[in-house]
Design a protein around this nucleic acid. Structure first.
Lengths: 111, 111
DNA sequence: ATGGGTTACTTACCTTCCGTAAGGATACGC
DNA sequence: GCGTATCCTTACGGAAGGTAAGTAACCCAT
């Protein structure tokens, strides 16, 4: 049983966190500024309120998202990225670049 | 109902693809060169054979991974990234950089 | 004061995905 | 043919996700 280099556990945790279902989309939607609950639902097609609520709580726990309550009527709640969340900007940008290159025209996958 | 900009569907597909459970880890393990089935199992702690098999098939279908059979004894099967897969190098690198910055010491999440 | 509108969740239920263990396919050495 | 090695496949219970309905707080209109 020869030793094989194991992948970096920090990388693994990061990609599972950001790549968890809907999470990457929510982060991109917040990348341009703070958003309300309903706005996030509109920004991410297919995402439903139950999962959005669940994901926002996870992101808050992980310290990527901050929740701000404005005591107006009706109550307005804004979600925004923390510094930790905003620092994913380059990750998001590289994923976007890859997507534009390889997912737009479904061809040229040999190599 | 005011219009909210929807996130890019290509980005969404990309992040859900790469971020799907175990997939990001498998891709990183293949980033340094071709690997055998058993080597991948060793490289990614917690990953079991059923899921590895499932993910490799998906990655082949998506054109990110190529499967090569060597008719030796016992049969040797090598998995390697295609050009499409290798082009995720910068994505992996940025995730790694973020992970090193923010997940190593669990502090400083305000902002 | 009661009924309805708006926003942000929460609960409930069922289906799909994942984790774990066991079994199968192929090929060789004895 | 029996054991060993590698690469999957099948089976099944439990966790996660999809969908719809319900709750809570607040205001306004009737």
């Amino acid at each position: 049983m020869k030793d094989v280099a194991q992948i970096c556990p920090l990388y693994h945790k990061a990609i599972e966190l950001v790549g968890k279902r809907w999470t990457g989309a929510i982060i991109e939607a917040l990348m341009t500024g703070s958003r309300r609950f309903g706005e996030l639902l509109e920004a991410v097609p297919g995402l439903h309120d139950r999962l959005l609520s669940e994901r926002l709580k996870e992101l808050e726990t992980e310290g990527l998202v901050r929740r701000r309550v404005h005591a107006e009527t009706p109550v307005r709640i804004q979600y925004e990225l923390t510094a930790k969340g905003r620092d994913l900007k380059k990750v998001v940008a590289e994923v976007q670049r890859w997507a534009d290159r390889w997912l737009h025209a479904p061809s040229g996958t040999r190599g």
